[in-house]
Amino acid sequence: MQIIPKKEKQKWIVFIVSILIFIVAFILSISLGQRQIAFSTTLDAIFYYDETVTEHIIVVTSRLTRAVIATVIGTSLAIAGAMMQALTRNPLAAPDIFGINAGAIFFIVLAITLFSVDSLVHYMWIAFIGAAIAALCVYFLGTVGTGGLSPIRVVLSGAAVSALFVSFTQALLVVDEQRIQSILFWLAGSVAGRSMDMLLPILPFILGGGLLSLLLGGSINVFLSGEDVATGLGQKIALLKILIGVVVVLLAGGSVAIGGSIGFIGLIVPHIVRGLVGPDYRWIIPVSAFIGAGLLLLADVVARFLIMPQEVPVGVMTALIGTPFFIYIARRGLS
């Protein structure tokens, strides 16, 4: 009985540290950029906004928006990844690896090129549908056969589904050459150049998904102790799986609709967090949310400076950071 409070204390420390990391990353994100702006000016811009000062406008309209969007996307992807890893019991599960991002993007590009859809609310619904279809594809592909969802099979199915959707997306873009430039940066995954108006319609869904995930933490713990045990304890497994699926589709689809394909956040963050707080999903989900936001904010800050004066799309940054991690998990998890 003495061990538990001690662990509990450690978890609280991790939780608070993760919040601090997030806050520091957020402040860095709004104060650093191509144009050097003194930190005091940044604070002034937020608390005493004066629209005649150029710096204030930059901070509020460009950087603050960007930081808020990075926060939302980072949080969503990290939680989605954690939920997928629980649902599939697969350490390599993440929205991008399972082809969910590629599915959502294909359907958005389809809607843009063929049906000239251009309102963000529509993008959002289309992204949800696309994400759901891709997720279902992979889930069914991964479950056929005897062994249930074998990690390798799901990853391979995901790779195949991704390849399919990416190639169809490319076909659509080749047909519509004028749009490549505008869509490309978004395809690569970016949090820049979005306005608050784009975020607002999606926010309720993402918040809903996030809250639902927090409520599911305890049930996931029971679920992870084995489906037999969970059934024995009276858990409705089918319902839980559907709810997890809904959370994943809302969070992953929503973040693709805003930021395009940003990979590896959903893969890396839950692993780091599991190392810090253990396997308890009541802790993993909130801590993942803050670490995910912090990581994406930091990646975005680095992306601004790497090849000045241009910017690296943040999706490229996360892929470059994430690949070594993926390889590490692949080597460790399967040996």
């Binding site: 690569a188 241009q310 999706g315 490229v316 892929a319 470059l320 690949t323 390889i327 399967l334």
Partner: peptide, 27 residues
Amino acid sequence: VTPLRLVLIGIGVSAAMNAVITLLIVV
């Protein structure tokens, strides 16, 4: 080298390469 590890790591490295390609296109 086990075949499955090779395939998995290949998928990971492909992702990194695709990121590099995207970067090259953007710049």
